[in-house]
Write a protein that binds this DNA or RNA. Sequence first.
DNA 1: CTAGTTCTGTACCGTGTGGTAAGAAACTAG
DNA 2: CTAGTTTCTTACCACACGGTACAGAACTAG
Lengths: 195, 195
Amino acid sequence: MAGGRPRAFDAEAALDRALEVFWRHGYEGASMADLTSAMGINRPSLYAAFGNKEELFSRVLDRYLAGPGGFSTAALAADRARDVVERLLYGAVELTTGDGTPAGCLNVGGVQACGPEAEPARRAAIDRRAAGDAALRERLDRAHAAGDLPPGCDPATLTRLVSMLTDGIAVQAASGASRAELTEAVKTALRAWPA
Amino acid sequence: MAGGRPRAFDAEAALDRALEVFWRHGYEGASMADLTSAMGINRPSLYAAFGNKEELFSRVLDRYLAGPGGFSTAALAADRARDVVERLLYGAVELTTGDGTPAGCLNVGGVQACGPEAEPARRAAIDRRAAGDAALRERLDRAHAAGDLPPGCDPATLTRLVSMLTDGIAVQAASGASRAELTEAVKTALRAWPA
DNA sequence: CTAGTTCTGTACCGTGTGGTAAGAAACTAG
DNA sequence: CTAGTTTCTTACCACACGGTACAGAACTAG
């Protein structure tokens, strides 16, 4: 006694469309009408497949971090700490100034305070950020133990600074800065850490 | 043929209340009901005095930059370029992590993409940011001409980097970073520019 | 007091929001 | 072919949104 009518859409492809919409308009700025229209499905199908708007956003966040934001976990695999940071910063520039993608960062945009009903989405974004920071922190702790950090550099503070820079990159991109401009700024910032 | 009923509220005090609400909830997250309630006035009074939500936000932005954000123009008066930057960065930390004020920055939050009808407010925020960047750029140009910049430092790029850092500070504060943590990170960033 | 003007208070408008009820349609197991 | 299950489609719900019409209240000039 199984079966049932098969769904007429690809859930993962629909999530990619939803990602595009959330990325461009933010959590609150993306209406269910925008989402269903972009995903090519009806409202009840969306609710049956993904729960509600908040859960959909959460799944989109995961997809974002695994896809376009995947460079940030990949960067941690670099041999030297400076390369880790360099990959993170340039990766953030590329992510937030991509040609076919919206300017800015879905996760950074999700942090900005909005209405009370968007609070769960905000927390979801903040939680993912904290997880990313923790992973970087753990990597820099290892670098510190191996003497791979500049003298007098606290891994926790350095983690905070890198996170601050990637956040700044996202806001700059969202407000119109070009990839070339941000690349130059990152290059200047990295001058403080000679290779 | 003059006179008319006098208004029963102080417009500037009402703007301060509106500032608090916009700062905490963002442009879209602040409803007219929130605003009128906090300002202690009725809807028609608000519309008569300030136009509409968008114009109110614009006036609040000006008040924000003249008040809590005033340090950013004051910082430009420092004698040495490094002091200008230092004041800007520490000032941003203080602004975004104030005790009685919401975490984050009204102007940075305004940049984040939201619904289509918030686009004018977004542009208003971006324009103010551009004006601030232009003022800093002009100050760093003078410093460059006076040999007050580190060797090989482009004023335009340095302006972008400082703006990126203050943006990052705002996002970090909005996502829960403490004043002490951000102060440490700024201190580390400033190490690249010896005093 | 009257005429003119401006603000206040209540009650309302159209629209868009996230979310859902109900039934038809498409599939599988027997 | 039938019963059971899951999806799709249409139509709808209550509600909150930004914005406003209208009448009464408070003031000034004559």
